[in-house]
Structures are given as structure tokens and as C-alpha cells.
Simulated scan of single mutants.
Amino acid sequence: MSHPTPYPVRLADEITRQLGQLADHLSQLPPPQAAQVIARILDPDNGVLGGVTHLVATGSVFAKNLAERGALPAEVWLALGRASNELGDITLDLDEHKDTLQRATAAAKPPAPAPLVVRRHR
């Protein structure tokens, strides 16, 4: 008898599938919309990259606990810790470009409508 797949595993699979869809959509967007999507993905607090960084950091803590009990090789914990640190550094590096991405996003907004009738004073 097979065991049902736990919800967190199904959730991880679904997120992976949706990330693939997002990449497919991103590759087809016009540049202004692509800049808007990229800005949201790279947002260090609420974006995908920040979420993945947090997820890897959480995994590193879990792996440390397992390694301390001898249930996991210490190398796995160390690798997750390095990955977490590297992702954190990448997030900080990309955060420096947040203003540039926001300007590109702002440029993507349609201009305000201009009045078409000019009144003349006689």
C-alpha cells in the first residue's frame, strides 16, 4: 500500500510548478511589464527571492539539529548554511538595484491623460 504524499511535499511541488510558469510568462512579457515582475520577484521582504532565502535558512536550522543528533552528516548542514548565506548576500546585492527597477516599473505606467481642448481667451 502506498503512503499519501504529505501536504508540505505537495506544496513544494506546486510552488516549483508555479515558478516554472512564472518564468515562462516572464520570458514573453514586454520589457516594462517584465521589469515590474522582476522587481516583485527580487523584493527582499515580500518577493520570491526573499522567500527562498528564508526557506533555505529554515532548512539550515533543521539540518543543524539533525546533524547534532547524528541523523544527518554535518556537511549537509554546512552546505545549507553556505547556501543560505550566499542567497542572503545575493539578495543584498540585488537590493541595491531596487530603485532602478522601480523607476523602470514607474516608466511602464501609462501617462496621465492630457486635456484635448485648450480654451482661448479673447
Results as ranks from 00 to 15, higher is better:
Pro6Phe: 00
Thr5His: 01
Lys64Tyr: 08
Arg69Trp: 06
Lys64Ser: 09
Met1Ile: 05
Asp24Val: 08
Leu29Cys: 06
Val48Trp: 11
Gln28Trp: 05
Pro4Gly: 00
Ile38Ser: 04
Ile38Glu: 10
Ala112Trp: 04
Leu80Ile: 01
Gly50Phe: 07
Leu87Cys: 01
Glu75Thr: 10
Ala57Met: 09
Arg122Trp: 05
Thr5Ala: 02
Ala34Ser: 02
Val117Gln: 13
Arg82Met: 13
Leu22Thr: 07
His121Cys: 11
Ile15Ala: 10
Asn46Glu: 15
Glu96Ser: 07
Leu55Asp: 08
Glu68Ser: 08
Ala67Tyr: 02
Met1Arg: 11
Leu87Met: 08
Ala71Gln: 15
Val117Leu: 14
Glu96Ala: 13
Asp95Arg: 13
Leu116Trp: 05
Val118Asp: 14
Gly70Pro: 05
Gly81Ser: 15
Glu86Phe: 08
Thr58Tyr: 09
Leu94Asn: 01
Gly20Lys: 01
Ala39Lys: 03
Ala23Asp: 14
Val37Met: 13
Arg17Met: 08
Leu66Tyr: 08
Gly59Ile: 00
Asp43Pro: 07
Ala71Leu: 15
Arg122His: 13
Lys109Ser: 14
Gly50Glu: 00
Phe62His: 12
Ala79Lys: 08
Ala35Leu: 06
Pro111Gln: 13
Ala107Gly: 11
Gln21Glu: 15
Pro73His: 05
Leu78Phe: 07
Pro44Gly: 00
Ala35Asp: 10
Thr58Asn: 12
Gly88Leu: 00
Ala39Phe: 02
Ile90Tyr: 10
Val56Tyr: 03
Ala83Cys: 09
Ile15Leu: 14
Val117Pro: 07
